[in-house]
Design a protein around this nucleic acid. Structure first.
Length: 646
RNA sequence: GCGCCCGUAGCUCAGUUGGAUAGAGCGUCUGGCUACGAACCAGAAGGUCGCGUGUUCGAGUCACGCCGGGCGCGCCA
C-alpha cells in the first residue's frame, strides 16, 4: 500500500516539476528523519536549486503553491532548508488497507532465470553452499512476490574434476566396484564422499604420480563407458539427491537441473564455438605462450586496456575450458544457442512442484526451460573475472541486450571464525592463526557441513521447546523446533549484505535472541496467539469493515503510536521493491526485524484482549490481524515458517 | 604489479544510492513476569564513520592519494 502512494506522489511531483520548470529530474523519496515530520520527504527543491540557482526553500514554496490535492495526502509542508514533507490522510490510508483484498499476484511478463546452489556433486553441502542457496532462493521469492515469472536452475557439474577425484578414490584407493559403491549410497553417502574427497586430495599431494588417476577417470567419464564412468553417475546422482534433500530442509526448491553430461553429449559447445569463430569473438593464437589455443582478447572483457593476458577458451589439445562451456550454457539460458536439452522428471516436492533434470534423449511432455530475458547467476565473488569473460562472450557475439541482462549476483564467501575453527579441532599454522578468519575448503575436508549445522540448530531449539511445552508430543516438539531452526539459519545467512564476508561462528548462528529469525517468528506467533485466545474466549473476530468506519480509524490513528505501527506494517511492498532493485535480500530481513520490533513493543504496551473500550478494542484487533498478515507475508519471502507456538 | 571488495560503538553488522540530530543486535549496567507466555519490553553508558586532500548549499556515502585487511588475476573448475 505504501508503495502505491509513494509512486503516486513521485509521479505527481515529477509532472509538477516538468510543468513549472521544464526540468526532467528523478524525484527522490526519503523517509523523514523524525516521524513527526510526516510520512514522506522530498528533497526535490535541493536538486532544483543547483539548476535554477535559487534558494531551495523558495523553490519548495513555489512548487506547492496552487498544487492540486493528491488523493490520500492530507498535507504538504515546506520544512527545514527546503524539504517538502508529506503527511498522509491517516483515515483514508487505513481504510484502503482495510478494504484491500488479499491480491494474489499473477506471475506474468518476461521470464527471469535465477541460477543458484550449483554444488559439485561429490561431497556434502557446507555453510558456504548454504549462503548461496539462501540468497538465491530468497531472491527468487522476492521476485515472485513482485509478480515476476521466475525459473530456478541448479547446474550440476557431474563430469568434472571434483566428481572424478571421488570416483578415483573409490576405484584406485578403495578398490571398490560400481556395485559396492551403489550399496554405499543408502547411508549418508554425501558425508562418506566428503571424507574420501579429502583423502584423495591429500593422497595427490603425497604422491603426485597418482594424479594420473584423475586423468584416467576424466577420460573414462568422457567416453561414457566402463566402471569408472558408471561409478561417476552413481556418485553424482546420489550426492545430488542428498543435496536436494538438504536444501529441501530449508525450503529451497528448483525447477530444473541442467547437467554438464548433457551439455557435452548434446554438443552445446560445438554450436557456441561456431558462433564465436564466425563472429570473430575468439581467434587462433599462432605465437607466444598461448600458441595453438583459441583465445578471447583481454580487450573484450578487461575494460579495453589491452595490457592483460588474453583468456584461453580452447586449449592447444582441443579441449574446451570451463569458461568456454559456460558461454555455451549462458547462450542456452537466453535461447541463443540453437540447441536445447531434453528433460525427464526427477522428483516431486511435497508442495507439488516438480523438479526436472536434463537428459540426452528426447521425451514427450516436458515443459519448456530456458529462453529467459534476464539471467541472474548466483556465484561467489571469487568468480567475478570469469563471469566477466562470459558476458564479454555474449557481447562479442553481438548480443548486447542479453549481455546487459546477464547479472552476476555475487556475494562474499563464508569463512570460519578463529573460535569456530578451534571448536572444530582444526589445526592451524602460526600464519593462519593471525588471520581474521579461516577459509572453508572442501578439498581439505575443512568446514561445517550443512546437515550437521541444521541438526545442531534443531537440537538447541528442541531444548527450549521441550522446556516451554512439556505437554505436547515429542514429535510435535521436534516439528516446531525444526521450524525455529530453519528460521534461525535462513535469517542468519540473509542478515548480512552480500558484500560482507561472514566469519561463521556457532555462538552467533545458534542465537535465538535479538536480531534473529526466531525473534521475528516469536513476534508473529504472539499476534496469532492473541487472535486464538480471543476465539478461545468465545468471542468471534469482529467484522472490521463494518465496525471500523473511516471516522473511527481516523480517531484511533490520531494517536501517534498507533499510526507509526500501522505505517511500518504497511510498507512490505515498498521494502521488497527496494530490496529487489538493490539485489539485497538482507533488506527484507532487516525490514522483517524492524516490523517484529514494532509489534513486540505494541504488544507489550497495549493489552488488547483486556481493552474495555469497544471501538479501541476492535481497532487493536484489526491492527494485530494486519500485523500478523504482513509479518507472515514478509517471513514467507524469507522462506521462514511461523510455528504454531513458541 | 594490476583489478574488485571491506574498514562505522568493546564485538557482529545496518545505513533507503549525496540530505535534517550517524542506527540496530550482542555484551555491560539499571528496571519490568498473578496481564495476550519474558525466545520479550523500557532505560543508561558507549562514535575523530581507518587517515588526508578535494568536489558543493550539504559527504559515512562521490573523486584522488595513503594505511590496514580479504579475494581474484591458470591451456584448474
Amino acid at each position: 500500500m505504501f508503495h502505491v502512494l509513494e509512486r503516486r506522489i513521485q509521479n505527481t511531483f515529477h509532472r509538477r516539476i516538468q510543468e513549472r520548470y521544464g526540468a526532467d529530474i528523478p524525484v527522490v523519496i526519503e523517509q523523514p528523519r523524525q516521524s513527526d515530520f510526516g510520512e514522506i520527504a522530498l528533497p526535490a527543491a535541493f536538486q532544483l536549486a543547483k539548476v535554477l540557482k535559487q534558494a531551495p526553500r523558495r523553490i519548495a514554496s513555489e512548487l506547492l503553491a496552487g498544487m492540486a490535492p493528491i488523493p490520500g495526502v492530507a498535507a504538504l509542508e515546506v520544512a527545514g532548508n527546503g524539504y517538502i514533507n508529506v503527511r498522509f490522510d491517516r483515515g483514508a490510508y487505513a481504510q484502503a488497507l482495510l478494504k484491500a483484498e488479499e491480491q494474489v499476484r499473477e506471475e506474468t511478463g518476461r521470464k527471469i532465470i535465477v541460477e543458484h546452489t550449483n554444488i559439485n556433486p561429490n561431497k556434502a553441502a557446507h555453510i558456504g553452499h548454504l549462503r548461496n542457496a539462501a540468497l538465491g532462493d530468497t531472491f527468487v521469492r522476492m521476485l515472485r512476490a513482485r509478480g515476476k515469472r521466475v525459473e530456478v536452475q541448479n547446474y550440476i557439474d557431474n563430469t568434472g574434476v571434483q566428481v572424478a577425484d571421488v570416483v578415483a578414490g573409490f576405484h584406485f584407493l578403495e578398490r571398490k566396484t560400481p556395485g559396492e559403491v551403489e550399496a554405499l549410497t543408502a547411508n549418508r553417502f554425501d558425508y562418506l564422499c566428503w571424507d574420501l574427497y579429502a583423502r584423495v586430495s591429500a593422497h595427490y599431494k603425497e604422491d603426485p604420480d597418482s594424479l594420473r588417476w584423475r586423468a584416467e577417470t576424466l577420460h573414462a567419464i568422457e567416453s561414457g563407458e566402463g566402471d569408472l564412468a558408471r561409478m561417476a553417475h552413481i556418485v553424482s546422482d546420489a550426492v545430488t539427491a542428498a543435496h536436494l534433500e538438504t536444501m529441501l530442509r530449508l525450503g529451497v526448491e528448483y525447477d530444473v537441473l541442467p547437467r554438464e553430461s548433457e551439455i557435452l553429449h548434446l554438443k552445446f559447445w560445438a554450436s557456441a564455438f561456431e558462433q564465436l569463430k564466425a563472429r570473430g569473438a575468439i581467434h587462433f593464437e599462432t605465437e607466444g605462450k598461448n600458441a595453438g589455443c583459441w583465445v578471447m582478447p583481454a580487450s573484450a572483457f578487461a575494460g579495453g586496456s589491452g595490457t592483460e593476458d588474453s583468456k584461453v577458451i580452447v586449449r592447444s589439445d582441443g579441449t574446451v575450458t570451463y569458461v568456454g562451456k559456460d558461454i555455451a550454457y549462458q547462450l542456452w539460458k537466453f535461447g541463443l544457442l540453437g540447441k536445447d536439452f531434453h528433460y525427464r522428471p526427477l522428483r516431486a516436492y511435497p508442495d507439488g512442484r516438480q523438479v526436472w533434470v536434463t537428459t540426452g534423449e528426447p521425451r514427450e511432455h516436458a515443459p519448456e526451460f530456458g529462453r529467459g530475458t534476464r539471467v541472474y547467476n548466483v556465484i561467489d565473488v571469487r568468480q567475478s573475472y570469469l563471469q566477466d569473460v562470459v558476458v564479454a562472450g555474449l557481447r562479442a557475439l553481438g548480443y548486447e541486450q542479453q549481455a546487459a541482462e546477464s547479472i552476476h549476483f555475487s556475494y562474499e564467501m563464508v569463512a570460519l571464525s578463529q573460535r569456530c575453527a578451534a571448536e572444530l579441532g582444526i589445526e592451524l599454522s602460526e600464519e593462519d592463526r593471525k588471520r581474521p578468519h579461516v577459509e572453508v575448503s572442501g578439498r581439505k575436508g575443512l568446514g561445517v557441513k550443512a546437515d550437521d549445522l541444521i541438526d545442531k540448530l534443531i537440537e538447541k531449539a528442541l531444548e527450549e521447546v521441550a522446556a516451554r511445552h512439556p505437554e505436547v508430543s515429542a514429535e510435535e516438539q521436534r516439528a516446531v523446533a525444526t521450524q525455529i531452526a530453519v528460521g534461525a539459519l535462513r535469517y542468519f545467512l540473509l542478515k548480512f549484505t552480500r558484500t560482507s564476508v561472514i566469519a561463521f561462528d556457532f555462538q552467533e548462528a545458534l542465537s535465538f535472541e535479538g536480531d534473529t529469525g526466531p525473534y521475528v517468528q516469536y513476534s508473529a506467533v504472539r499476534a496469532r496467539n492473541i487472535l486464538r485466545k480471543l476465539e478461545e474466549r468465545g468471542e468471534p473476530l469482529p467484522d472490521f469493515q463494518s465496525e471500523l468506519p473511516p471516522e473511527a480509524l481516523a480517531r484511533q490513528l490520531a494517536f501517534e503510536d498507533f499510526w507509526q505501527v500501522l505505517l511500518a506494517a504497511s510498507k512490505v511492498d515498498a521494502a521488497v521493491e527496494r530490496a529487489v532493485e538493490s539485489g539485497e535480500p538482507a533488506h527484507v530481513a532487516k525490514y522483517a526485524f524492524q516490523l517484529a520490533q514494532a509489534f513486540n513493543n505494541f504488544y507489550h504496551q497495549y493489552h488488547i484482549l483486556h481493552e474495555t473500550d469497544r471501538e479501541k478494542k476492535v481497532f487493536l484487533l484489526w491492527m494485530t490481524d494486519f500485523f500478523r498478515s504482513q509479518l507472515e507475508q514478509t517471513l514467507s519471502i524469507l522462506g521462514i515458517d511461523v510455528p504454531p507456538y513458541m
